[in-house]
Write a protein that binds this DNA or RNA. Structure first.
Lengths: 148, 148
DNA sequence: CGCCTTTATTTGTATATACAACTAATAAAG
DNA sequence: CTTTATTAGTTGTATATACAAATAAAGGCG
């Protein structure tokens, strides 16, 4: 046993991506279930939240913060624009297409907060406090990683 | 300040789902990059790994282990079957459609192990040892959660 | 000013994901 | 043994995601 050969068993038991993806599915489903009455999914919710925080957001800003591919965001924003939750903001740089929450978008976010709280509590209960505590640091590192 | 009103700032800073999704994107990209030379994505890789572990796997088994929707798995298995990595196994219960790795599937998994190891090391480095240590427990809980 | 590079976004294409509805087959009830 | 309920998968539809390529507008340089 000089070299501990990595085998299928080992990967099945230790793969970080596999575990993360599994947890991500379960947790995203918790939030999606809670937000369904509002016609909102957590994927879009997080974009709305960050947009609200920024006031006026450019796609490139959101993509950096959330580590989203630009093409992914583009389509997601388009859907939320059609839903009346986001609106474009005029700008001098014609390459950029910044946007902000509409009034309807703000009302949506406000009204969904109790559902978010419920999902958040359920997720915390499921994953355990210690894990959740470490999420912040890990997410910060991931958010700042520059692998492009 | 009787009731600490949850506001947009709070959600932006604390949403478990948002953080998990972000980490999941970054980490999945690490593995997908590493596995790209093999025409394999980590989403499929994990299904192959679990199939290999089980020997013969039924869709419902994989879905339970990985907390995947049956329709998701169905399409994913179909792709890997077309790629020659999975093959159907005859069964007496005509409702079930179990499958196993083909020889090519086994070879693929074996050949991709060094790339997986590289990605695994990179992910560990990025997320931190303490976080990775807690992943096991959290994933186990998520895997056993029964929210259907 | 005109060319070249960089930056910001969109479009084409493919996989991942889930929900709802459907099909088919076994199991359970009577 | 027939009817009903349960179980296993697939298909329709919609969003999420990323990569590659295309578009378009600034910015920099000679």
């Amino acid at each position: 046993m000089d070299k501990p050969a990595t085998n299928i068993e080992t990967i099945a038991k230790t793969c970080i991506a596999g575990r993360l993806r599994l947890i991500n599915r379960v947790v995203s489903n918790i939030y999606d279930d809670a937000l369904r009455p509002f016609g909102l999914k957590i994927s879009q919710g997080n974009i709305l939240i960050f947009t609200g925080k920024l006031g006026v957001a450019s796609p490139v800003q959101i993509c950096e913060h959330l580590q989203l591919d630009a093409s992914t965001l583009s389509r997601n924003v388009e859907l939320m624009r059609k839903n009346g939750w986001l609106e474009e903001v005029p700008t001098d740089d014609a390459r950029s297409r910044p946007f902000r929450l509409t009034e309807a978008g703000k009302r949506l976010v406000e009204s969904a907060i109790p559902a978010w709280e419920k999902a958040q509590a359920e997720a915390k209960e499921l994953l355990g406090d210690d894990f959740v505590s470490l999420l912040n640091k890990a997410a910060k590192r991931a958010s700042e990683s520059n692998r492009a």
